[in-house]
Nucleic acid binder design. Sequence first.
DNA 1: AATGAAAGCAACCGCAGTAGT
DNA 2: AACTACTGCGGTTGCTTTCAT
Length: 271
Amino acid sequence: MVRTPVCSDRSGLKKGTWTPEEDRKLVAYVTRYGCWNWRQLPKFAGLQRCGKSCRLRWMNYLRPNIKRGNYTKEEEDNIIKLHQSLGNRWSAIAAHFPGRTDNEIKNHWHTKLKKRIQQKLDNHDEKTECSNSEDHCPLQHNQDTNAEVHNNKNHVDPILINQSSTQIQADSWPLSPNSSLSDLSSMSLDSTALTSTNSVLEDTSFGPLEAHAEPISGNFWTETFMAENSYVPNDIVPLLVIEDLEYFCPTYEEELLSQNCLYEEYQGLFQ
DNA sequence: AATGAAAGCAACCGCAGTAGT
DNA sequence: AACTACTGCGGTTGCTTTCAT
């Protein structure tokens, strides 16, 4: 059996920037059916994309609760600390920052933080002229040890051992790979995602997926929801799950209306 | 206003890890 | 144990935007 490439142009798959229409289709599909198989998903969602591309788009931009930009000083300091201890393990670093993606943190590191550190190093070198003793260059020393740490998968993150920062709560904030429907009510929506989500209301264009998708039932949504949304704030869970199982998606249109209602309710909680 | 350089960012690619058979 | 199918990760690319001249 020959494995077909996950990403291939031979079948005319599209590459490059995602259009709002593609976003809408992806959000609509994942919102309704979840990510049961990324490789098959584009076919059923009506997308001329490879599964990998769909996954990336969802994970980095369309997934609910994504935070974009506006890094706080505390976040940046923590990224630097974590990078010193974890090296380039961006997903591990991102796990400490709810709503941040590994890709964005990686980009932020390369475009901002790395330069900042380099400047500090340069300044430090100028002031101390510590060219021959690493004992006098602790930051440099830390960077030098990164490779060693990076190569040791069993390395225990010292920051995790004695973690006092509220920003860093690896256990309580795993970066869920599969946030779904219910998170829509708690997400900090970027404009694209919001547009896409709202547009879902009008999208009934899925074709052959019906044959493959799970029927929408309480179990389907409950199980998916509970499994995939461990980081939904506790006070939202009852609103979304316990009280609203019936209310939750008895039909597609009602489901989508529910999302909007829940989103509005959630917004109301914080006003 | 035009243009080239630099910075920022979204997306792609290839590899590693893992589950299933 | 060997192989396939799939997911996830990190490195990298290249397009777009911003800035400087």
